[in-house]
């Protein structure tokens, strides 16, 4: 049943966010430290474990896949509910932060892809 997948997904997020908040409290920060990241790793491990035991049926998977597929629309809704007018004052900064990062990363693609190829041929 799709609800099994959605339940697993929701449980992973709840555990992840709780872990993140507890970790934050432990470090004296009133913040969620990496809760989403922990939830993602949990989901990968749990779904892999369930699949290897044959407990992950396609309908159950659909209960997870649906939410992954609706991720772009949710990001669109998130963008539409941001304080954009407040951000427009710093338009140049946002552009530079994005653009300079892209230019440097393109240069790094060339360097690291070549390093990867050397690694492969030396094996």
């Amino acid at each position: 049943m799709p609800i099994y997948g959605t339940a697993l997904l929701a449980a992973c997020l709840l555990v992840g966010v709780s872990t993140g908040k507890l970790l934050g409290a432990l470090l004296g920060i009133d913040a969620d430290i990496g809760g989403v990241g922990v939830a993602m790793l949990l989901l990968i491990f749990c779904s892999d474990w369930l699949r290897r035991r044959g407990l992950m049926s396609p309908p159950s998977e659909n209960g997870i896949l649906f939410w992954g597929q609706i991720y772009v629309p949710i990001v669109v809704a998130m963008a539409a509910s941001q304080n954009v007018r407040g951000a427009l004052g710093g338009g140049v900064m946002a552009f530079l932060a994005g653009a300079v990062t892209v230019v440097i990363c393109f240069a790094l693609v060339k360097i690291l892809a070549r390093a990867g190829r050397n690694q492969e041929t030396s094996r």
Partner: peptide
């Protein structure tokens, strides 16, 4: 739109993309 793009559904969808 604020609920749809809010923390709860947003985090749920992001975690779901890790599946597979």
């Amino acid at each position: 739109v604020g609920l749809m793009g809010g923390a709860m559904l947003r985090d749920l969808a992001i975690v779901a993309t890790a599946f597979g």
